[in-house]
Amino acid sequence: MTVAMPRLTARRFALRPPRPPIAAATVVLGLALTAVAWPSLFAADPLAADPLHVLEAPSAAHWFGTDQLGRDVFDRVVHGARHSLSIGVAATVIAVGAGILLGLLAGLTHRAADEVLSRGFDALAAFPLVLLALLFIAIAGTGTVSLIVAIGIATLPHHARVVRAQTLVVRQAPYVTHAVAFGASRTRLVLRHVLPNVLGPIPVLAMIGLGEAVLIAAGLSFLGLGPQPPSPEWGAMLSEGRGYLHIAWWASVLPGCAVTATVISLTVIGRHLQNRFEGRHQ
Protein backbone atom coordinates (compact mmCIF):
# COMPACT_ATOMS: atom_id res chain seq x y z
CA MET A 1 0.00 0.00 0.00
CA THR A 2 2.69 2.42 0.96
CA VAL A 3 4.62 1.39 -2.14
CA ALA A 4 1.64 1.79 -4.41
CA MET A 5 0.85 5.36 -3.39
CA PRO A 6 3.73 7.19 -5.04
CA ARG A 7 3.32 5.13 -8.20
CA LEU A 8 -0.30 6.12 -8.41
CA THR A 9 0.65 9.79 -8.01
CA ALA A 10 3.23 9.44 -10.76
CA ARG A 11 0.65 7.89 -13.06
CA ARG A 12 -1.83 10.61 -12.36
CA PHE A 13 0.82 13.17 -13.08
CA ALA A 14 1.69 11.54 -16.42
CA LEU A 15 -1.94 11.47 -17.45
CA ARG A 16 -2.76 15.02 -16.47
CA PRO A 17 -4.36 16.66 -19.50
CA PRO A 18 -1.69 18.61 -21.35
CA ARG A 19 -3.47 21.94 -21.22
CA PRO A 20 -1.23 24.13 -23.40
CA PRO A 21 -1.17 21.64 -26.32
CA ILE A 22 -4.95 21.40 -26.17
CA ALA A 23 -5.26 25.15 -26.27
CA ALA A 24 -2.85 25.38 -29.19
CA ALA A 25 -4.60 22.60 -31.05
CA THR A 26 -7.95 24.26 -30.51
CA VAL A 27 -6.64 27.54 -31.86
CA VAL A 28 -5.03 25.95 -34.93
CA LEU A 29 -8.10 23.89 -35.62
CA GLY A 30 -10.38 26.86 -35.04
CA LEU A 31 -8.36 28.83 -37.57
CA ALA A 32 -8.50 26.01 -40.06
CA LEU A 33 -12.25 25.67 -39.63
CA THR A 34 -12.70 29.41 -40.10
CA ALA A 35 -10.58 29.14 -43.25
CA VAL A 36 -12.94 26.42 -44.44
CA ALA A 37 -15.99 28.55 -43.75
CA TRP A 38 -14.75 31.94 -44.93
CA PRO A 39 -11.48 31.74 -46.87
CA SER A 40 -12.23 35.15 -48.38
CA LEU A 41 -11.74 36.63 -44.91
CA PHE A 42 -8.09 35.67 -44.94
CA ALA A 43 -6.91 35.44 -48.49
CA ALA A 44 -7.37 36.55 -52.08
CA ASP A 45 -7.83 34.45 -55.23
CA PRO A 46 -5.68 31.31 -54.85
CA LEU A 47 -5.56 30.82 -58.63
CA ALA A 48 -4.27 34.29 -59.58
CA ALA A 49 -1.00 33.59 -61.37
CA ASP A 50 1.68 36.18 -61.96
CA PRO A 51 4.38 34.86 -64.30
CA LEU A 52 6.62 37.82 -63.56
CA HIS A 53 6.84 37.00 -59.84
CA VAL A 54 7.45 33.27 -59.62
CA LEU A 55 9.17 31.48 -56.76
CA GLU A 56 9.66 34.64 -54.73
CA ALA A 57 10.68 34.25 -51.11
CA PRO A 58 8.26 35.10 -48.29
CA SER A 59 7.87 38.85 -47.90
CA ALA A 60 5.41 41.45 -46.62
CA ALA A 61 3.50 41.27 -49.92
CA HIS A 62 3.51 37.46 -50.04
CA TRP A 63 3.65 36.09 -46.49
CA PHE A 64 4.40 32.55 -47.65
CA GLY A 65 6.16 33.56 -50.90
CA THR A 66 4.97 32.64 -54.39
CA ASP A 67 4.94 29.31 -56.22
CA GLN A 68 6.15 28.23 -59.67
CA LEU A 69 3.33 30.11 -61.38
CA GLY A 70 3.62 33.22 -59.24
CA ARG A 71 0.56 32.35 -57.13
CA ASP A 72 0.51 33.46 -53.52
CA VAL A 73 1.28 30.43 -51.34
CA PHE A 74 -0.49 31.89 -48.30
CA ASP A 75 -3.70 32.39 -50.28
CA ARG A 76 -3.42 28.84 -51.54
CA VAL A 77 -2.76 27.37 -48.11
CA VAL A 78 -5.78 29.16 -46.62
CA HIS A 79 -8.05 28.14 -49.48
CA GLY A 80 -6.50 24.68 -49.31
CA ALA A 81 -7.87 24.31 -45.78
CA ARG A 82 -11.30 24.10 -47.36
CA HIS A 83 -10.28 21.27 -49.65
CA SER A 84 -8.26 19.26 -47.16
CA LEU A 85 -10.54 19.61 -44.17
CA SER A 86 -13.80 19.16 -46.03
CA ILE A 87 -12.43 16.04 -47.70
CA GLY A 88 -11.39 14.79 -44.26
CA VAL A 89 -14.75 15.59 -42.66
CA ALA A 90 -16.78 14.13 -45.50
CA ALA A 91 -14.70 10.94 -45.54
CA THR A 92 -15.05 10.59 -41.77
CA VAL A 93 -18.80 11.12 -41.95
CA ILE A 94 -19.02 8.32 -44.51
CA ALA A 95 -16.78 6.04 -42.47
CA VAL A 96 -18.62 6.72 -39.20
CA GLY A 97 -22.11 6.57 -40.72
CA ALA A 98 -21.54 3.38 -42.62
CA GLY A 99 -19.50 1.98 -39.73
CA ILE A 100 -22.36 2.48 -37.25
CA LEU A 101 -24.90 0.99 -39.62
CA LEU A 102 -22.86 -2.07 -40.49
CA GLY A 103 -21.65 -2.51 -36.92
CA LEU A 104 -25.21 -2.51 -35.61
CA LEU A 105 -26.27 -4.92 -38.33
CA ALA A 106 -23.46 -7.29 -37.44
CA GLY A 107 -24.11 -7.02 -33.71
CA LEU A 108 -27.88 -7.37 -33.77
CA THR A 109 -28.83 -9.64 -36.62
CA HIS A 110 -28.45 -13.30 -37.27
CA ARG A 111 -25.22 -15.05 -36.48
CA ALA A 112 -24.55 -15.88 -40.13
CA ALA A 113 -24.93 -12.24 -41.13
CA ASP A 114 -22.55 -11.30 -38.34
CA GLU A 115 -20.01 -13.79 -39.63
CA VAL A 116 -20.22 -12.47 -43.18
CA LEU A 117 -20.00 -8.83 -42.15
CA SER A 118 -17.22 -9.41 -39.64
CA ARG A 119 -15.10 -11.32 -42.12
CA GLY A 120 -15.79 -8.47 -44.53
CA PHE A 121 -14.42 -5.98 -42.00
CA ASP A 122 -11.42 -8.24 -41.44
CA ALA A 123 -10.75 -8.42 -45.16
CA LEU A 124 -10.99 -4.64 -45.54
CA ALA A 125 -8.85 -4.05 -42.47
CA ALA A 126 -6.22 -6.47 -43.75
CA PHE A 127 -5.30 -4.04 -46.52
CA PRO A 128 -3.23 -0.99 -45.71
CA LEU A 129 -5.48 2.09 -45.79
CA VAL A 130 -3.65 3.76 -48.63
CA LEU A 131 -3.68 0.63 -50.78
CA LEU A 132 -7.41 0.24 -50.33
CA ALA A 133 -8.01 3.88 -51.22
CA LEU A 134 -5.73 3.53 -54.26
CA LEU A 135 -7.67 0.48 -55.39
CA PHE A 136 -10.96 2.34 -55.16
CA ILE A 137 -9.57 5.35 -57.03
CA ALA A 138 -8.19 3.07 -59.73
CA ILE A 139 -11.73 1.79 -60.29
CA ALA A 140 -13.70 5.01 -59.81
CA GLY A 141 -11.23 7.47 -61.31
CA THR A 142 -9.53 10.48 -59.78
CA GLY A 143 -11.32 13.47 -58.33
CA THR A 144 -12.53 14.90 -55.07
CA VAL A 145 -15.65 12.76 -54.75
CA SER A 146 -13.94 9.44 -55.37
CA LEU A 147 -11.14 10.49 -53.01
CA ILE A 148 -13.72 11.09 -50.25
CA VAL A 149 -15.50 7.80 -50.86
CA ALA A 150 -12.19 5.94 -51.10
CA ILE A 151 -10.97 7.20 -47.73
CA GLY A 152 -14.42 6.65 -46.23
CA ILE A 153 -14.45 3.00 -47.28
CA ALA A 154 -10.85 2.45 -46.28
CA THR A 155 -11.39 3.73 -42.74
CA LEU A 156 -14.83 2.19 -42.28
CA PRO A 157 -13.91 -1.24 -40.75
CA HIS A 158 -12.39 0.34 -37.67
CA HIS A 159 -15.63 2.10 -36.73
CA ALA A 160 -17.77 -0.88 -37.68
CA ARG A 161 -15.77 -3.24 -35.46
CA VAL A 162 -15.99 -0.95 -32.44
CA VAL A 163 -19.73 -0.51 -32.87
CA ARG A 164 -20.23 -4.24 -33.29
CA ALA A 165 -18.24 -5.02 -30.15
CA GLN A 166 -20.18 -2.40 -28.15
CA THR A 167 -23.44 -3.74 -29.50
CA LEU A 168 -22.62 -7.28 -28.37
CA VAL A 169 -21.94 -5.94 -24.87
CA VAL A 170 -25.00 -3.70 -24.73
CA ARG A 171 -27.44 -6.29 -26.00
CA GLN A 172 -26.65 -8.43 -22.93
CA ALA A 173 -27.15 -5.48 -20.57
CA PRO A 174 -29.98 -5.82 -18.05
CA TYR A 175 -31.85 -2.76 -19.32
CA VAL A 176 -31.98 -4.29 -22.80
CA THR A 177 -33.14 -7.67 -21.59
CA HIS A 178 -35.73 -5.85 -19.45
CA ALA A 179 -36.89 -3.82 -22.41
CA VAL A 180 -37.26 -7.07 -24.38
CA ALA A 181 -39.21 -8.54 -21.51
CA PHE A 182 -41.49 -5.50 -21.51
CA GLY A 183 -42.15 -6.21 -25.17
CA ALA A 184 -40.46 -3.17 -26.70
CA SER A 185 -40.53 -3.14 -30.49
CA ARG A 186 -37.40 -3.93 -32.40
CA THR A 187 -37.06 -0.40 -33.76
CA ARG A 188 -37.55 1.12 -30.34
CA LEU A 189 -35.09 -1.32 -28.88
CA VAL A 190 -32.41 -0.38 -31.37
CA LEU A 191 -32.98 3.38 -31.46
CA ARG A 192 -33.79 3.95 -27.81
CA HIS A 193 -31.73 1.42 -25.92
CA VAL A 194 -28.89 0.07 -28.03
CA LEU A 195 -27.78 2.90 -30.32
CA PRO A 196 -27.29 5.63 -27.68
CA ASN A 197 -25.24 3.27 -25.59
CA VAL A 198 -22.91 2.03 -28.32
CA LEU A 199 -22.09 5.54 -29.60
CA GLY A 200 -19.90 6.46 -26.64
CA PRO A 201 -16.47 5.89 -28.20
CA ILE A 202 -17.51 7.19 -31.65
CA PRO A 203 -16.73 10.93 -31.23
CA VAL A 204 -13.27 10.04 -29.98
CA LEU A 205 -12.65 7.63 -32.84
CA ALA A 206 -14.05 10.13 -35.32
CA MET A 207 -11.76 12.88 -34.09
CA ILE A 208 -8.67 10.69 -34.39
CA GLY A 209 -9.99 9.29 -37.68
CA LEU A 210 -10.44 12.82 -39.00
CA GLY A 211 -6.73 13.53 -38.56
CA GLU A 212 -5.92 10.29 -40.31
CA ALA A 213 -8.34 11.07 -43.15
CA VAL A 214 -6.80 14.51 -43.69
CA LEU A 215 -3.37 12.90 -43.83
CA ILE A 216 -4.39 10.18 -46.30
CA ALA A 217 -6.21 12.75 -48.43
CA ALA A 218 -3.09 14.88 -48.59
CA GLY A 219 -1.00 11.81 -49.40
CA LEU A 220 -3.27 10.68 -52.23
CA SER A 221 -3.46 14.21 -53.60
CA PHE A 222 0.33 14.30 -53.51
CA LEU A 223 0.22 11.31 -55.84
CA GLY A 224 -2.10 13.25 -58.16
CA LEU A 225 -5.22 11.24 -57.24
CA GLY A 226 -7.20 13.98 -55.53
CA PRO A 227 -8.37 17.39 -56.70
CA GLN A 228 -6.66 18.21 -59.99
CA PRO A 229 -4.50 21.30 -60.62
CA PRO A 230 -4.93 24.19 -60.23
CA SER A 231 -6.98 23.36 -57.08
CA PRO A 232 -5.19 24.63 -53.99
CA GLU A 233 -5.09 21.33 -52.11
CA TRP A 234 -2.30 20.92 -49.56
CA GLY A 235 -1.03 17.56 -50.81
CA ALA A 236 -1.16 18.70 -54.43
CA MET A 237 0.74 21.86 -53.50
CA LEU A 238 3.43 19.77 -51.82
CA SER A 239 3.67 17.65 -54.94
CA GLU A 240 3.87 20.61 -57.33
CA GLY A 241 6.40 22.41 -55.17
CA ARG A 242 8.75 19.48 -54.59
CA GLY A 243 10.54 20.00 -57.91
CA TYR A 244 11.62 23.41 -56.65
CA LEU A 245 12.50 22.37 -53.12
CA HIS A 246 16.14 23.39 -53.18
CA ILE A 247 15.49 26.82 -54.69
CA ALA A 248 12.09 27.66 -53.22
CA TRP A 249 11.41 25.62 -50.09
CA TRP A 250 8.40 27.72 -49.13
CA ALA A 251 6.25 26.47 -52.01
CA SER A 252 6.18 22.95 -50.56
CA VAL A 253 7.32 23.23 -46.93
CA LEU A 254 4.63 25.71 -45.84
CA PRO A 255 1.68 23.67 -47.22
CA GLY A 256 3.39 20.71 -45.53
CA CYS A 257 3.40 22.62 -42.24
CA ALA A 258 -0.32 23.27 -42.67
CA VAL A 259 -0.98 19.53 -43.06
CA THR A 260 1.23 18.72 -40.10
CA ALA A 261 -0.31 21.35 -37.80
CA THR A 262 -3.83 20.25 -38.68
CA VAL A 263 -3.20 16.54 -38.25
CA ILE A 264 -1.36 17.04 -34.96
CA SER A 265 -4.14 19.34 -33.66
CA LEU A 266 -6.82 16.84 -34.54
CA THR A 267 -4.87 14.00 -32.96
CA VAL A 268 -4.12 15.95 -29.78
CA ILE A 269 -7.78 16.84 -29.37
CA GLY A 270 -8.78 13.27 -30.21
CA ARG A 271 -6.38 11.81 -27.63
CA HIS A 272 -7.60 14.28 -25.06
CA LEU A 273 -11.19 13.23 -25.70
CA GLN A 274 -10.09 9.62 -25.49
CA ASN A 275 -8.50 10.17 -22.10
CA ARG A 276 -11.61 11.87 -20.83
CA PHE A 277 -13.82 9.15 -22.26
CA GLU A 278 -11.80 6.43 -20.60
CA GLY A 279 -12.12 8.32 -17.34
CA ARG A 280 -8.41 8.69 -16.80
CA HIS A 281 -8.88 12.08 -15.17
CA GLN A 282 -11.63 13.96 -13.49
Binding site: A48, A49, P51, Q68, L69, P229, P230, E240
Partner: peptide, 11 residues
Protein backbone atom coordinates in the same frame (compact mmCIF):
# COMPACT_ATOMS: atom_id res chain seq x y z
CA UNK B 1 5.01 21.12 -70.00
CA UNK B 2 2.41 20.36 -67.35
CA UNK B 3 3.49 23.44 -65.42
CA UNK B 4 3.53 25.44 -68.66
CA UNK B 5 -0.06 24.30 -69.29
CA UNK B 6 -1.07 25.57 -65.86
CA UNK B 7 0.58 28.90 -66.59
CA UNK B 8 -1.33 29.21 -69.87
CA UNK B 9 -4.48 28.12 -68.05
CA UNK B 10 -4.07 30.95 -65.55
CA UNK B 11 -3.21 33.46 -68.30
Amino acid sequence: RDVLAQAVQAA
